[in-house]
Simulated assay, not measured.
Amino acid sequence: MGDLDIQEFIQQNRALADQVETYRGVSESEKHWDARREFLLRNINDYEDPHMDNLLALSMVWANNVFLGCRYSDELLEKVREMAEGIKVVDAPIFKTRDEIMKKQKGL
């Protein structure tokens, strides 16, 4: 789903979109929320009640990895990356591990 597809989906599924809006964190920026909302909307049919908490947790794992550089197990990251396939995040930060930084400094 691109931006237009998401907007179309929201217009056609107003009640569901309104429900998803209630999951926005008070400190989430527009950029962060737009991406996480798309993640939720893409996967919500697979995680309806009583499993919505699982989807919300997975959406936070994905967003925290993309926007904050948080690290999780390889299996978990693979799962959320598959769930997020096709979501385009503009100007996502690029994070380097301590080992990558140290290796670069030694190479100088």
Rank of each mutant, 00 (worst) to 15 (best):
R14G: 04
R14I: 15
M102L: 06
H32L: 13
Q19K: 09
I94H: 11
D99L: 05
G86P: 04
Q12Y: 10
V61S: 07
I10L: 13
D46I: 01
D34F: 12
V61F: 11
E48F: 09
E28S: 04
L16D: 07
K31F: 10
E48M: 12
D46S: 10
G86S: 07
L77T: 08
L76A: 10
K88F: 05
G107N: 13
Q19L: 11
L16T: 12
L56Q: 11
S27V: 10
K96G: 00
R24A: 03
Q11E: 14
R14H: 06
V89Q: 14
F9N: 08
E78S: 15
K96L: 04
M52R: 11
R14V: 11
K31C: 12
L55S: 02
D18I: 01
P93I: 04
A84S: 11
G25H: 08
N54T: 13
M60N: 15
R98K: 14
Y72T: 03
D34H: 10
H51C: 07
E21F: 03
Q105V: 06
L77E: 06
Q105K: 10
D49R: 04
R71S: 14
G69V: 01
K104L: 06
E100P: 00
V90C: 07
I87D: 02
L58E: 03
V66F: 02
V20R: 02
A35L: 11
L4T: 03
H51D: 14
F95R: 00
E78A: 15
E28G: 09
V26M: 12
Q11K: 15
Q7E: 14
N54V: 08
I44H: 09
Q11M: 15
F9Q: 06
L16I: 13
K31H: 14
L40A: 01
P50N: 02
E100V: 00
N65G: 02
V89A: 12
K31L: 15
E28Y: 06
V61L: 13
Y72A: 04
E21V: 00
K106S: 09
I6S: 07
G25S: 08
S29E: 05
W62I: 09
E78D: 15
E8C: 09
A57N: 12
G25T: 03
I44K: 03
L77W: 03
Y47R: 04
A63L: 15
E85V: 05
